[in-house]
Simulated scan of single mutants.
Amino acid sequence: MTIPILFEDGEALVIDKPAGLPIERPRAGGRSLEDHLATLRLGFQRDPVAVHRLDTDTSGCLLLARNPKALVRFNRAFEERAVTKRYLGIVAGNVADDEGTIELSLSKISSAEKGWRMIPAKKGKPAITHWRKVAAHGELTLVEFRPETGRTHQIRVHAASGLGAALAGDPVYGSKRTGPRTMLHAADLVVPRDGKPAILAHAPLPVDFAQLGFAHE
């Protein structure tokens, strides 16, 4: 597997993470991003380190830090909500409005039958997602998501409970029968830096989006 590099300089890489590739090694074993870190050194002595997380099924922009000082700065940028993230997702269903903002606090629950998942809860952690309808094809809609916060499974839960239309293929919050995977793609990433140009990265829509009728944004 060749992983496309979207941005590279002395302290950062942004890769186009393929769907299905977990960032950390699964407990049951199998391939992960860790198998590619030596290749992604690109002449450096250290393995790059993932700064944030994308779900295994999610494709697109993933920031890697190439040294410990950069990792600290990038983590701070995420914590301070200085990072701009833009996602594209295919939802199963028609979306009536053209755009809006979803504000649903999220909390984690767990059960022996279903494992863990996130749910909307008044006492949960605040979560805000701005969205815009991009295109429709049959019973599917392409939606742009701009999360203001970075909660676990935020876009997935906000699509299902806020839009009323879960991401296509989402086995937890929707139905895996509606898509080949959870159809979410991290399309753009902007990370500001003091004294340096911002990190700018764009990941084009992957092939499986085109297969569902969305070849263009």
Rank of each mutant, 00 (worst) to 15 (best):
K69Q: 15
R46N: 10
R27I: 00
R46A: 11
R66V: 00
A112V: 08
D55F: 09
G124W: 14
L62T: 04
L40S: 07
A121P: 06
V51W: 05
V49R: 06
L33D: 01
R46F: 10
T56E: 14
K108A: 13
A38E: 15
P48Y: 04
A121K: 13
G29Y: 09
A77D: 01
H36T: 05
D98P: 05
T56Y: 03
F74G: 09
R25F: 11
K108H: 10
E99D: 14
D55H: 13
D35Q: 04
K122Q: 12
G30M: 03
P26I: 06
S110D: 11
N67Y: 03
R73H: 11
Q45I: 07
G20N: 08
E103Q: 12
L63M: 05
L63W: 05
N94C: 13
E24F: 11
E79H: 08
T101Y: 02
M118V: 06
G30Q: 12
Y87I: 03
K85P: 03
L104F: 13
S110I: 12
E103H: 12
A28G: 13
Q45H: 15
E99Q: 08
R31K: 06
E24Y: 10
K114W: 10
T101S: 07
G89I: 02
Q45P: 06
H36P: 15
E34R: 08
T58E: 03
A96N: 11
R27A: 02
S32I: 06
K122N: 14
T56S: 10
P22I: 00
K108S: 13
K114I: 12
K69S: 13
N75Y: 07
K123D: 15
L40M: 01
F44N: 11
R117V: 03
V95W: 04
D57R: 13
W116M: 11
L21Y: 11
E103K: 11
T58G: 04
A82L: 13
F78V: 03
S110Y: 13
L63P: 03
R86F: 07
E79K: 12
F44E: 14
E34H: 07
V91G: 05
D47P: 04
T56F: 00
S111L: 01
N75V: 02
S110A: 09
E79Y: 06
P120M: 00
F78G: 07
P120K: 03
R66C: 00
R86A: 05
